[in-house]
């Protein structure tokens, strides 16, 4: 795996695009100001192709990268590590995933799960602050991000999945 990755720098470069896209956060690709979760859009096809443990490690590394460019007390790590593991498991032991609807649904579930991990971390951090209004904002952000990510997934994930499969990463 490591040897294959080393011989294909485009795989590493594509992962480095995720923080850049997150920082760029183009407003014309947003839904009510919420941009898609680029981490989910990259990790989904990658983990489906590379398998269980590489998927988990990719989620961990991607989490480190995104935490490096984010302020605050919440982290990407728990959500991305578990998603990488789950999608890697699906790619290795689940049925062959190719359809755009399947990819959209997996991206929607992944985005909801990732947002839930953020929400839980915020709730734990603000425990006792009596900030009930955070919940309505968090729910709105969760739904909007999941929707826009699921809308982008059929275009981006199916294309990148095709590229990884041609490169035979596994």
């Amino acid at each position: 795996m490591a040897k294959k990755l080393y011989s294909r720098p485009i795989c590493i470069a594509s992962a480095l695009l995720v923080p850049f896209l997150t920082l760029f956060s183009p407003s014309w690709l947003s839904l009510f100001g919420i941009t898609p979760s680029w981490a989910v859009l990259w990790l989904l096809p990658w983990s489906l192709e590379v398998g269980l443990l590489p998927g988990l490690i990719s989620g961990l590394y991607l989490g480190f990268l995104l935490d490096a460019i984010s302020l605050g007390e919440i982290s990407h790590l728990p959500g991305l590590v578990l998603l990488g593991f789950w999608w890697g498991w699906l790619g290795r032991y689940g049925s062959y995933i190719q359809g755009t609807f399947n990819l959209g649904l997996l991206a929607w579930i992944g985005s909801v799960f990732l947002s839930l991990t953020f929400w839980i971390q915020i709730l734990v951090r603000n425990f006792g602050s009596h900030l009930n209004s955070i919940n309505s904002w968090a729910f709105q952000t969760l739904l909007l991000q999941a929707t826009i990510t699921a809308l982008f997934a059929p275009f981006i994930c199916s294309w990148t999945l095709l590229i990884w499969r041609r490169k035979k990463l596994r």
Partner: peptide, 8 residues
């Protein structure tokens, strides 16, 4: 870079 909406 501006991330004034969303989780961060």
């Amino acid at each position: 870079s501006r991330r004034s909406t969303g989780w961060w």
